[in-house]
Amino acid sequence: MEDTQIIQLFFARSEEAIMALAEKYGTACQKLSFNILQDNRDAEECVNDSYLTVWNQVPPAIPSPLFAYLCKIVRNLSIDRYRKRHAAKRTDTLTVAWEELEPFLPAASTPEQEMDSRQITIILNQFLGTLSRQDRLIFLRRYWFMDSYQEITQLAGLNENTLSVRLTRIRKKLKTYLQENEVYL
């Protein structure tokens, strides 16, 4: 079913809207949530919560594109759940991805120096625009979709070593870009 048709169902407050959303995007959402939580049951609950969030926001929201809007909700709820679940101990995929990034993110020396999240997003959009399409894909599959190295190697046709070098190079580029734009976290 077409996105506009699904949104019309949400506006009509028809429960078919949720079914249509699940049928069309359920698999992709489940995968994204699982990448973060590494637990099928938790991922399923997060995806269902995401459908409920869409139900509560549409209307009045008319999301376009619907897929990206839904993915952002799934990612946000999954990371929230991850934070609660792993407050004491962090050992899995998301932590590994964050630990990879940590040394490449310029630190603020004072709280005043920290940049607002929305401004950082604007600069990140610009940074992504400077990357080649392949580098952008690799970067986003790793740090937005939280894919494992193995998944990305299959996706990109690269071996793990090449991928690792490539990701390091992108992270260095990110660090330079953030420093040049005075982004401190």
């Binding site: 594109p65 990206a68 990371i79 997003t121 959009n125 894909l137 986003l140």
Partner: peptide
């Protein structure tokens, strides 16, 4: 953790980049 804040900012990047990577 800086990476967590970074991840929050990354979440709201332009939709076309998300669609590009997903596609």
């Amino acid at each position: 953790m800086k990476a967590e804040k970074f991840s929050d900012a990354l979440e709201n990047i332009d939709d076309r980049y998300i669609l590009e990577a997903a596609g």
